[in-house]
Design a protein around this nucleic acid. Structure first.
Length: 128
DNA sequence: CGCCTGACGAAAC
DNA sequence: GGTTTCGCCAGGC
């Protein structure tokens, strides 16, 4: 609630038009932040939870500012629907994402999360 | 102001 | 059944 965050990824967000904000970006960050340790989710799942399942790309794009916002967003817990670390190339060391996941108890082999559906965390499921 | 790219996803071919 | 294209929306050039 409330809390207002810093806008989104870059700054530019708030347009003089007075709308749009980055609601979408913020929502993505909030959801991603709620991912429990040892669990992962997919871009599409977050998008669907936000009501924009078709905009899964935006979710990934939003993650572009994951390490830029506060508190930092565990983007490493977000993978594509196949359980592949599609965003590992965007981390400082490409292997950092896999490393973090393994550290949390997630098995990652060949850039792919093992037991993906077992560790999959559904944002809607947390609404309970 | 228009075209291309982008950490996805699903449908079409 | 694998590959390709579109859709989604936003931002960079």
């Amino acid at each position: 609630m409330a809390t207002k965050k810093k806008s989104s990824v870059k700054l530019k967000t708030v347009r003089p038009s007075g709308k749009t904000e980055n609601n979408f970006f913020e929502l993505v960050f909030e959801v991603a932040r709620q991912i429990p340790k040892g669990r992962v989710t997919s871009y599409g799942a977050i998008a669907a939870c936000l009501g924009a399942k078709s905009s899964s790309r935006m979710v990934g794009w939003a993650m572009n500012g994951a390490g830029r916002v506060k508190p930092k967003v565990p983007a490493h817990r977000v993978v594509n629907r196949l359980g592949i670390l599609s965003g590992k190339h965007h981390f400082s060391p490409p292997g950092l994402m896999e490393k973090l996941l393994k550290k949390e108890g997630i098995k990652v082999i060949n850039d792919q999360v093992q037991d993906f559906k077992n560790v999959f965390w559904d944002p809607s499921a947390n609404l309970e």
